[in-house]
């Protein structure tokens, strides 16, 4: 923290912008059902890679932006992303040692937990029985895409020389 590296922040913001665009992009109804939560994947990566720079507060702020982006209840994604960042920062030493397959399990847990929170909030609106099974698809697709996201972001981080 005492050595703020602007390139890390810039890279983070650039990748965050990309993830938000991907999250908001509408390609076709069939593909959109599987559009994973790119921002969660991104936060998981950066919290594991640079836990001393990005943490709960970053997640909270990003979550607030996502709430506005997705037109959801303000604070919903802030809560979810703060929780995800908390677990990632707390377990980052162990997570770094995990093979990719085991990391996928952790990602599955994170995405499932975040989707469950959304489910809980939606069921307060008494519409949960209307939620189709496709509500849970992004959890699966996100887990399956994690290795690709991980390798891509690591490539970007190495190219930007961020340690």
């Amino acid at each position: 923290m005492n050595n703020p590296d602007p390139s890390a922040t810039l890279t983070f913001l650039a990748t965050l912008g990309g993830a938000m665009v991907l999250k908001a992009m509408a390609i076709s109804p069939a593909v959109d059902l599987f559009n994973p939560d790119w921002v969660s994947l991104l936060l998981i990566y950066w919290c594991i890679a640079l836990p001393e720079r990005f943490g709960v507060f970053t997640g909270w702020l990003v979550g607030l932006l996502i709430d506005v982006l997705a037109g959801q209840l303000l604070g919903q994604n802030a809560l979810i992303h703060a929780l995800i960042c908390y677990f990632c920062v707390k377990e980052h030493r162990r997570l770094r040692q995990f093979p990719l397959a085991q990391q996928c399990l952790f990602v599955l847990f994170c995405l499932l937990a975040s989707r469950s929170i959304v489910f809980g909030i939606e069921s307060m609106k008494a519409t949960a029985h209307h939620l189709p099974p496709s509500f849970w698809y992004p959890v699966l697709s996100g887990t399956l895409l994690w290795p690709a996201v991980f390798l891509l972001l690591r490539k970007i981080r190495v190219l930007a020389r961020i340690n």
Partner: peptide, 17 residues
């Protein structure tokens, strides 16, 4: 951590009410 969760919950409740 606790602060973030409480702040988020406060936001949710304020936004609903």
């Amino acid at each position: 951590m606790l602060v973030a969760v409480i702040a988020a919950l406060a936001l949710i409740v304020t936004d609903i009410r």
